[in-house]
Structure formats: C-alpha cells, structure tokens
Amino acid sequence: MTLLFYSAGAIALIATLSVILSSNVVHALVYLIISLLSVAVIFFALGAPFAAMLEAIVYAGAIMVLFLFVMMMLNLGQATEDEERAWMQPSLWIGPGLLSGILLLLFVSTLLTHDVTLAPVEVSVRDISLLLFGPWLLAVELASMLLLAGLIAAYHLAKK
C-alpha cells in the first residue's frame, strides 16, 4: 500500500506539471485524466474505495469527457497552439512561481511539525451512506439544487 501511494503520488505530480506546462489543450486534458486516475489510486491506497470509484467515474469519466466535447466543438487548431507557445515565456513564470513556492514552503513547514501515521483502515460504503442519508441529508438536497442550477445556467449560457 505504501509503495502504491508513493508511486501514484509521483505519477500524479508529473502529470499535473505536464498539464500546466503543456501548450496543446487536448494533450493537457489527457495528462489531467492520468493525474485524476492516479489520485483515484491514492484514494484506494488510503482505504477509500468508494471515493476512488467516484473519482474514476465522475472526474476522469464524466467531467473530462465534457471538457473533450467542448474542445471538439471549439476546434481550436494549430493557431491557438502557436499563440500558446508564444505566451509561455520563462520571465512570465518568475513572479507566480515565487509566490507559489512561498505558499508551498509555508504549507510543508506547517505540516511537518506533527508526526502521525495512517493505518489504512477501510471506510466502507455503508458508513458513508449512513452518514450521507442521515445527518447530511440537507447537504445532499442542496447538492442536487446546485447541480440543477448548474444545468440551467450551462444551457442558458451556451445557447446561441
């Protein structure tokens, strides 16, 4: 499980870096799918198989396919890729890279002060659903309202 966690984490990092450094949209999408699938493997290693399945089905399946469909509709082509390559100057990355680096340093230095290990005990689907349809029922209803609002807004915005 430990080996699975670290190797999937390394793949997720490399794939995510490839997403933000890539200049072709479709290549970046495929890298993002790889990254999401390796995060699903990490969930599995952490003893959350239900979250892993949802990550693979909803994130890597549904959301990324939606992205791909829109990319096919837009049909961006070579001109956008050349433009993208022209924007990727190294000087552009200095400021944001510095800020993000400081943020990451703060995160890591805060997190490394504790020392607790994870014993991967599986949280079953039964536990999740008992909580989800018990105390968190209102949140589920609100999530359905959010999805309905997203559906209506997407239809209205993409209409001619």
Partner: peptide, 22 residues
Amino acid sequence: MDAIPYEHGLILAAILFVCGLL
C-alpha cells in the same frame, strides 16, 4: 499493512494545489 505518514498525504495535496495555483 505498513503505515503511510499522514503528513505525506497532506503534502501531496498541498503540492497539487500549488501546481493548480501556478
């Protein structure tokens, strides 16, 4: 099963978050 340090998971999440921010 061997244990994964809890911080390593959170550090991985932090690194992914910072990549997205970048």
